[in-house]
Amino acid sequence: MDNKNLAQKAISLLDLTDLTDTCDDAAIEALCKRARTFYGNTAAVCVWPRFVAKARECLKGTTIRVATVVNFPHGGEDLFVTLAETELALADGADEIDLVIPYHAFMEGRRGFAETMVERVRAAVPAPTKLKTILETGELKDPALIRAAADMAIDAGADFIKTSTGKVAVNATPEAAEIMMEAIAESGKAVGFKPAGGVRTLDDAGTYLAIAAKYMGSDWATPETFRFGASGVLDALLAEIKGETAKAGEGY
């Protein structure tokens, strides 16, 4: 696949994201406008829960999905608050829920607690709404712990496993992606993968798509099975398609 086709494919797999502290209605309007490009729409926009209804309004008449985050970004342990966030987001029209697992509890050996949260949120998220679980692999660090978290999330019913919040020092890495894709392949389940945080260039996108192809085949990555969580990469992808000087994007 040449670079222009790779860039266009990556756009179709993008969760265009604004999870900044300064986000407001005007920023959501701009985000939703950016999601509709001359070269195709992004798969989704990912926004704070309080902006789900606004994003839904802005994207009316398109196939772009609205994703939001719960238990974000710290992966807390209040199950009832997380369920309330989820239910409100669904009522406002969210198509996808990105749940941060309580990774501190998981690291401390309370893996059953983390599993229970995923299972309870899964039960609150009816199909076809997607549940994407954020493992925060840059904090888990240990490959064995990353694999255990991936296996847990898959077994608990996640539709996707996602590397990161984009809010910690180390976010998506190829090493974590390898571990997570291997877990998906070995599970035999229809589970997707989402690298998030630090995906800023076409080369970054190509690296993660190559890892997915290694485990699942070159045709596996579609919007139903693979997403990039990013805000800054879109400009670089568009520049590649238009033959302009590509700049590494900034942000999530």
Rank of each mutant, 00 (worst) to 15 (best):
R50G: 03
R36V: 14
E77D: 07
K162R: 02
V52H: 00
R122C: 12
D155H: 07
K167M: 03
I211E: 00
Q8W: 08
A153M: 02
L238R: 00
D18G: 05
A84V: 14
M180F: 15
T207E: 08
G61L: 12
A148S: 06
I146G: 03
M181P: 00
M117D: 07
E108C: 14
I161H: 01
D15I: 03
S164Q: 01
T62D: 07
I134G: 00
G61T: 10
M117K: 05
F113A: 08
V47M: 01
F80Q: 14
E57T: 10
N3Q: 08
E175C: 11
E178P: 08
T165N: 01
K141V: 15
T207H: 09
D151A: 10
P49V: 08
G243M: 06
D151I: 13
A84L: 09
K141L: 14
T137Q: 14
N171H: 05
L135I: 04
S231V: 05
L131I: 11
A236Y: 03
V118T: 07
G157F: 00
E77R: 11
G249H: 09
A55S: 09
D204S: 05
G229E: 02
C58V: 10
G251S: 02
E108N: 15
R120H: 07
A183I: 00
D15H: 04
K242Q: 13
V47D: 00
T173W: 11
T133Y: 06
L234S: 06
S218L: 04
T201V: 03
A149Q: 06
T201D: 15
G198W: 04
D204N: 11
T20Q: 03
S218D: 10
A185G: 15
A124P: 14
N71V: 11
V81S: 13
G249Q: 02
H104D: 10
G229D: 03
C32K: 12
D78T: 13
D142M: 12
I11C: 13
R122T: 07
G76H: 15
A149P: 08
C23S: 13
N41G: 11
M117Y: 05
I184K: 01
F160W: 12
A7P: 04
R36Y: 12
G166C: 10
D25Q: 09
L59M: 11
D151P: 13
L16W: 11
E186H: 11
L13S: 09
G61Y: 03
L83S: 06
T225E: 01
T37Q: 08
E175H: 08
V170C: 02
Y103G: 04
D203Y: 15
V69A: 01
G40A: 11
D25I: 02
E182Q: 14
T37G: 07
T86C: 09
G217V: 06
K242I: 04
K242A: 03
I97D: 11
L14T: 03
F226I: 01
V69L: 15
A44S: 13
M181S: 02
V118M: 09
K162G: 01
E119Y: 07
